[in-house]
Write a protein that binds this DNA or RNA. Structure first.
Length: 150
DNA sequence: TAGGCCATCTGGTCCT
DNA sequence: AGGACCAGATGGCCTA
């Protein structure tokens, strides 16, 4: 959300592209180079510009990817039992709560099916007087109405 | 002011 | 070559 006009702090001569992987080991006999270059020759300034362009594109994709991740997280929040309005779960809280919630739901389903094998832990369901189900999710108790509402 | 959360940038690695 | 994914670094914002 901030205004980072990407001025990379480390666009210097330290070129990490020259790490292992470009086959630069001196003791390995290299294959004879074919007469035709595999890529078009570029001037140093062209290379720098190309690298910047690629970086900018990669940044863009990465930003997009994180936005999609956040979107999915937001969707997950909407299917979790609602908390009081202002308390918005953080990312890690959302994931942990979702995990506990699923476990609790699964246990409830299991016990409703006549299984009954419950060892406590992440919680299970208890049917209320009015037919709704009380789910213990972590240290929170969630009431599921008969229609599925919380 | 310290600490938590978050967005973004960045370089590395793997895959197509 | 280029894209996806990942983890580390950095800086901003907010709250106790």
């Amino acid at each position: 959300m901030t205004h980072m006009t990407s001025l990379p702090p480390s666009i210097t001569t330290t070129d990490s592209c020259s790490s292992a992987g470009d086959g630069g080991s001196p003791d390995i006999p290299r294959r004879k180079r074919s007469s035709k270059p595999r890529t078009r020759a570029r001037s140093p300034t062209q290379l720098v510009r190309l690298r910047r362009l690629r970086r900018a594109k990669a940044n863009d994709r990465e930003r997009n990817r994180m936005h999609m991740l956040n979107h999915a997280l937001e969707k997950l929040r909407t299917v979790l039992p609602a908390f009081p309005e202002e308390t918005r779960l953080t990312k890690i809280e959302t994931l942990r709560f979702a995990n506990s919630y699923i476990v609790a739901l699964a246990r409830t389903l299991e016990s409703a099916g006549g299984g009954g094998g419950d060892d406590g832990g992440a919680g299970g369901g208890v049917r209320d007087a009015d037919g709704s189900v009380l789910l213990a999710v972590g240290n929170v108790t969630v009431r599921l109405g008969r229609d599925g509402n919380t």
